[in-house]
Write a protein that binds this DNA or RNA. Structure first.
Length: 990
RNA sequence: GGGCCCGUAGCUUAGUUUGGCUGGAGCACCCGGCUGAUAACCGGGAGGUCGUCGGUUCAAAUCCGACCGGGCCCA
């Protein structure tokens, strides 16, 4: 620190950060760091690629902190990181939606008349809009990944690797086409995967209608309940449970109704006339008149069938079934061979089959259909209910479930392997593995992979008129089968690829591409190998090796973690990763999820600048990130005050101290003899062990906790008690020892901090080390992880703990005796023999205790009783009836006088500080005090004059002339005053 | 509707696996002390229906059940 900044204290976290960033960037430190040691042991990692057509929020810094901690640790252990590439997820609906909004496009037809090629071009141009903001956020939080060479899921080589994976699945019979009921967004005109659906459930009001289904040739109506009247035109069956009991209830209007006995109270209050009771099985096969004559006749339609999925917990215990619009309906329809009838077009609009609502979107048809039923006497009851219903997570349009063609990854065929390979992974926190994630695996449904969209990896499947499907696994195959070479700048997106017509390898006929793109989650699941263009180019990807480590937030249990595992299992037949570290979400102060759509957002760039990357990293590391963390401005600003602030001040103290006397850096462990030095070195070794263990087990929490305790001990005990040694002359051995210990410990500490707090650690390393800020390879991040810092001495640590407990006891006694600490007392009495650990601290330990408590000596007394220590003269601390320690109630006159001198001296020092005087500014002092104090001051005037740099130092008993340079004090009822005048500078100090 | 996690002082939380001393700490607050590194530190104080109810037990924050509330996941 330059001399003119002497005494200004420690720099703030943002100041340190700016200094460190400047050093890193001037010397190209991160560029050299990313990949780790080129010939070191391989540590496999892949960054889960974020979509960056929108800005990040502060929550995104949480898992990135966790990733960075582990990667920094591995680099310091000499690992080669495969790979440290940043990555961007480029495809998918979020990007498409931005373009649709920009041009007011509302449907597939709109996009196609706009031009698919132009549409994709705009998507490509938009996909990385916020990449620079994400990069800047990474820079400011000290998140080291190589963003100069990121992988991008829209690049041709990446897509070719994805094709290779799809082809591998296809060849193994794990990728094929099916017709199933899937969630479908009529606005986006595509199917969605179940995890996308899960993001969009909302509470809404819907019609709740109970409809009469007249039984053929009977004066009875079946009652069936639905919240989706728009599915009634597609009704083909009514389903009953074979074992439920049904009642025929007389209604008085001439037509009896049939419903589950359990459901009767829901529909009738008071006594009802039950005409008959029968099991559901008896209803099987009876024909009924459908509510609308839309589907037309067909074998087996409009009759009652049986299935176990029916319950009587809600509705009537009879279920109206439209096989095109529900998974169970579809299954039953297929079993009963009644076919599928879907009156809606791709946008969810009714066609000619239902004239009543022709041209109406499905939801708006509800009231029209219900009114018509009522008019025809088919409506038994009509109400409105609140329930949850799925909406499109991106465009907010109501979804529907419908039977539709789709390509599937047959994950359900490899459930056992998924479970087995998941069990081979370590999860932090552990319970996620077999809990949330494991449960999901055992129920794994086939993965609906295809999307009827435009901006994505095109499904590389071509089908000929005879239905022969050909899956391509490379661009070379495409060129070969199409009979034409590909252009040098071939871009494998829609239009380009759609234009290619192949000749079917089976029959030679014309083969056209299936007009789908692939779920973006398949793209990102391929990242571990597609980032290297595997298997088309040589690279470090090893098909047999799982990743060593991944880390993301909790939402990825159903997202990226899942697709990584599916692809690792199906393509490479191995686990996806060895270890996984998962954090919960960062919540707003109110406990709600961070979201741009709701009110005020904590803006990450601004916060990282104003508060600093390290304090924000510390917020995540010092709390339990496996639970949701709530953060507001306040929390953020306070984060790191305690530990980081204390540490910065210890370093500032050290620097001031070392530089004042030009003491050298200390690079190797000093041989310590002083008990405090030995203790601190032992604590340092404890910290090193704890940190190493934590990082090796992929959980940084214990490392952060150990750092907090260590810094606390360093600041509030080691430094506090070592201060007299630091103030000794520069050539004194005790000063040298204290300096050597603190210098070494800080340097070593900075290496242990480097993974957690990269900026602070760098600052400490550069400032305390030997050649500050000088070259790229001088960064703490290249300094390696310490192997052994010093010798561990558990007995010494235990003894010191005991001693510090005794300090607390002593303070309590002083408080009770009402004798302030500055006034020395004759002795501290400890009862009973010292424990071996405490005794092990020897006379140094006793001296520490005496100095800290300002007593002249520490003596031991028999543990039996405090009989010799009457209450009139002693305060005694007892524990469980046995005496522990005792202190005299009053000081002797001599001690009192000594205390007063110290009191006055301290006040004068305080005054110097308040007057803005520097350490070496000489002053002239006149003190006025009443007799006993004046005498005490005169006796010690030489020492006081030296301490205060005062010449002359006069003591008078007469009052001082009033004036602006007079200070007055009143301590315990005794008044004294002083005049302190700064002398002309240039005079020799001391 | 089902699953997972959670509920302890105004706030942040330890303790719950394996029941056992007076439920421990930090921030904030009040009183006092200490301080020429510190946004600190030290002593004392005040602040707790350990979400609610019931059960098991000599003994429950801890184990069991039900319920209430929050978050996430699934439907």
């Amino acid at each position: 620190m330059p001399p003119d900044e002497e005494g200004t204290g420690a720099p703030t976290a943002p100041e340190i950060q700016r200094r460190v960033l400047r050093y890193w960037e001037e010397h190209g430190v991160p560029d050299r760091a990313y990949g780790g040691t080129p010939d070191g042991p391989v540590f496999r990692f892949t960054e889960g690629p974020p979509g960056v057509n929108g800005p990040p929020h502060l929550g995104h810094t949480e898992p990135r902190t966790l990733k960075d901690v582990q990667l920094r640790y591995r680099r310091m252990r000499g690992a080669r990181i495969v790979s440290a590439m940043g990555g961007w997820d480029c495809h998918g609906l979020p990007v498409e939606l931005a373009i649709e909004r920009k041009h007011g496009l509302k449907s597939h037809r709109d996009i196609e008349s706009f031009g698919v090629e132009r549409f994709c071009d705009e998507c490509r141009a938009t996909a990385l809009t916020y990449a620079d903001v994400w990069r800047e956020m990474s820079r400011r939080q000290g998140f080291w990944l190589d963003y100069d060479h990121p992988y991008r899921t829209m690049d041709a080589p990446y897509i070719e690797s994805v094709w290779w994976a799809l082809k591998t699945l296809f060849d193994r019979g794990l990728l094929d086409k099916g017709h199933y009921v899937l969630p479908y967004c009529p606005r986006c005109e595509t199917t969605l995967s179940s995890h996308e659906v899960a993001q969009g459930y909302r509470e809404v009001s819907d019609p709740s209608v109970t409809v009469r289904f007249p039984l053929e040739g009977e004066e009875r109506d079946l009652l069936a309940w639905t919240t989706t009247p728009w599915t009634l035109p597609a009704n083909l069956l009514v389903v009953a449970h074979p074992d439920l009991e049904y009642s025929v209830v007389r209604t008085g209007d001439g037509r009896d109704v049939v419903l589950a006995t359990q459901a009767v109270p829901r529909y009738f209050s008071g006594p009802v006339e039950v005409v008959a009771r029968l099991p559901g099985a008896d209803l099987a096969g009876r024909g009924y008149v459908p509510p609308f004559d839309a589907a037309g006749p067909g074998d087996g339609r409009y009759r009652v069938v049986l299935d176990d999925f029916v319950t009587a917990h809600e509705g009537t215990g009879l279920v109206h079934s439209a096989p095109s619009f529900g998974p169970d309906d579809y299954r039953i329809g297929a079993r009963e061979k009644v076919g599928v009838f879907d009156p809606l077009d791709g946008r969810g609009v009714f066609g000619d089959a239902v004239p009543l609502v022709r041209g109406k979107p499905f939801k708006t048809a509800d009231p029209i259909l219900v009114a018509d039923l009522a008019e025809r006497g088919r409506l038994f009851r009509s109400e409105t209910i609140r329930h949850t219903y799925p909406f499109c997570w991106r465009c907010d349009h109501a979804l529907l479930y419908r039977a539709i063609d789709s390509w599937f990854v047959r994950t359900s065929r490899v459930t056992d392997a998924l479970v087995r390979y998941n069990r081979a992974s370590r999860w932090v926190p552990e319970y996620l593995r077999d809990g949330r994630f494991g449960n999901f695996l055992t129920e794994a449904k086939d993965w609906a992979l295809s999307r009827s969209r435009y901006w994505g990896t095109p499904l590389p499947v071509w089908v000929c008129a005879k239905g022969h499907a050909t899956c391509l696994g490379s661009f070379a195959e495409l060129a070969q089968l199409s009979g034409a070479p590909l252009p040098a700048d071939f871009d494998p997106h829609r239009v380009t690829v759609d234009r290619v017509v192949l000749s079917c390898p089976t029959c030679g006929g014309e083969s056209r591409r299936e007009p789908y793109t692939v779920d973006v989650w398949f793209d990102s699941g391929c990242a571990p190998f597609a980032q290297f263009h595997y298997p088309f180019e040589p690279g470090p990807f090893d098909p047999a090796a799982p990743l060593d480590f991944v880390s993301e937030a909790i939402d990825q249990t159903r997202g990226w973690y899942y697709t990584l595992l599916v692809i690792a299992t199906m393509v490479f037949d191995r686990p996806a990763f060895r270890a996984n570290l998962t954090c919960e979400f960062l919540l707003e102060e109110t406990g709600r999820k961070m979201s741009k759509s709701r009110g005020r957002v904590l803006e990450p760039l601004e916060l990282l600048d104003r508060i600093g990357g390290d304090p924000i990293r510390w917020l995540f590391l010092s709390q339990d990130f496996t639970a949701p963390i709530r953060a507001g401005e306040d929390t953020l600003e306070k984060s790191g005050h305690r530990t980081l602030g204390a540490l910065r001040n210890v370093v500032a103290f050290h620097l001031e101290n070392a530089r004042a006397d030009r003491l050298p850096p200390v690079l190797t462990a000093p041989t310590a003899s002083n008990v405090l030095d030995r203790w601190l070195l032992s604590r340092l070794e404890g910290l090193r062990t704890a940190s190493t263990g934590a990082h090796e087990s992929f959980d940084p929490r214990p490392a952060a906790a150990a750092v907090r305790e260590f810094v606390d001990d360093l600041s509030t005990w080691y430094l506090r008690r070592s201060r007299p040694r630091f103030w000794a002359a520069a050539d004194r051995p005790e000063r040298r020892a204290a300096h050597a210990t603190l210098a070494f410990v800080l340097l070593e500490l900075s290496r242990l901090l480097a993974p957690l707090l990269p900026f602070t650690a760098e600052w400490v390393w550069q400032e305390v080390g030997e050649r500050g800020w000088s070259a790229a390879d001088r960064s703490v991040h290249f300094a390696g992880w310490p192997t052994e810092s010093a010798a561990r001495d558990p007995a010494l640590e235990a003894g010191m703990r005991e001693l510090r407990d005794l300090v607390e006891v002593g303070r309590e006694l002083r408080q009770r005796a009402e004798v302030r600490s500055r006034i020395p007392l004759a002795e501290l009495v400890l009862f009973g023999p010292a424990s071996p650990e405490l005794a092990g601290l020897g006379t140094e330990g006793t001296a520490l205790l005496a100095e800290e408590l300002n007593v002249k000596r520490v003596v031991r007394a028999s543990a039996e009783s405090a009989a010799g220590y009457p209450e009139s003269a002693w305060v005694v601390r007892e524990d469980g009836g046995r005496p522990v320690a005792a202190l005299p109630r009053r000081p002797s006159p001599e001690l009192l006088e000594e205390g007063w001198a110290r009191e006055v001296g301290r006040r004068l020092q305080q005054a110097r500080k308040e007057l803005g005087l520097r350490y070496l500014d000489p002053v002239a002092v006149t003190v006025s005090a009443p007799e006993p104090i004046a005498r005490a001051l005169r006796r010690r005037s030489t020492a006081l004059a030296t301490d205060l740099l005062a010449d002359p130092f006069d003591v008078v008993e007469t009052p001082l002339e009033p004036g602006p340079d007079i200070r007055r004090w009143d301590v315990d009822g005794v008044a004294f005053s002083a005049r302190i005048v700064r002398r002309a500078t240039g005079a020799a100090p001391g």
